[in-house]
Simulated scan of single mutants.
Amino acid sequence: MDLVRAILLKIEGHPTPTVEGYLEVDGYEQGPIHHHIDLLKQAGFVDAFCAMDANTEYGFLFQDVSLTWQGHEFLGTVRDPEIWQKTKAGAAKVGAWSVSIVAELAKGFVLQKMTTLGLPVGA
């Protein structure tokens, strides 16, 4: 999930809305990055076009990668490093790392932080 979060942050922070060519994420090789972009595409978090590229180690290259609304929503809940650390700790305790579980945990921590800050929560 750290790589998923890092990819989404990297795409969001790109100077243009669409990343073309290689997406580099510090500490990760292209194979796991490509695999996770494919998973993010399947989950509806990113739009991406995959092109065959014989010059790459993996034979393909993701081009035109951009965040979807759902990707922005998920990233919005896990962006804050403090919330992310709590979310990871919570997921480790539960033993569940599905995207939906992680998103729900993060939302809970965001709501908790809002309450602590005296912000209105709910209707």
Rank of each mutant, 00 (worst) to 15 (best):
T68P: 01
V78A: 04
G90S: 12
F74Y: 13
L61D: 10
F74K: 01
P32E: 00
D38G: 11
K88L: 14
A51L: 15
P32L: 01
Y58L: 11
Y22M: 12
G27C: 00
H36Q: 12
L61E: 14
D80E: 07
C50E: 15
N55F: 09
Y22R: 15
D53N: 15
G90R: 11
Q70V: 06
V46L: 04
A51T: 11
F60A: 14
G27S: 01
G76P: 00
V46M: 05
Y58N: 11
E57I: 08
I83M: 07
G59H: 05
T87S: 06
D53K: 11
H34S: 12
G27Y: 00
L39N: 12
F60N: 14
F74L: 15
V94L: 13
Q42T: 15
D64G: 14
H35N: 12
E104N: 09
E82H: 12
G27Q: 01
V46T: 10
A103K: 06
S100Q: 05
E20S: 08
V102L: 13
L39E: 05
E29S: 15
T68V: 00
E57Y: 06
W97R: 00
G31F: 08
G71D: 04
W84N: 04
K93C: 09
G13I: 09
S66R: 13
G13N: 15
P17V: 12
F74C: 07
A89Q: 13
M52Y: 13
F45T: 04
F60K: 15
G31N: 09
G90P: 03
Q70A: 10
W84A: 05
G27V: 00
V99M: 02
A43G: 05
M52C: 09
Q85F: 00
R79Y: 10
E73H: 11
H72D: 02
T87D: 07
H36G: 02
P17L: 09
V19M: 05
E29G: 13
T18K: 01
E29W: 08
N55Y: 09
A54E: 13
K41G: 05
C50D: 14
F45N: 04
D80R: 00
F45R: 06
T87Q: 06
G71P: 04
E104M: 08
A96Q: 10
V102G: 02
E24S: 14
Q30D: 07
A89L: 11
C50R: 14
V25H: 01
L40P: 03
G71Y: 02
L105P: 02
V78S: 02
S98L: 07
A48V: 08
D80T: 02
M52G: 12
V65N: 03
A91W: 04
S98H: 09
P17G: 14
L105R: 02
D26H: 08
A103H: 04
D80Q: 03
D80S: 05
E73N: 11
A92S: 09
E82A: 14
G71L: 03
S66V: 09
G27M: 03
A96I: 11
Q63E: 14
G31V: 05
V46C: 06
A89G: 12
M52P: 08
Q70T: 06
V102I: 15
W84H: 06
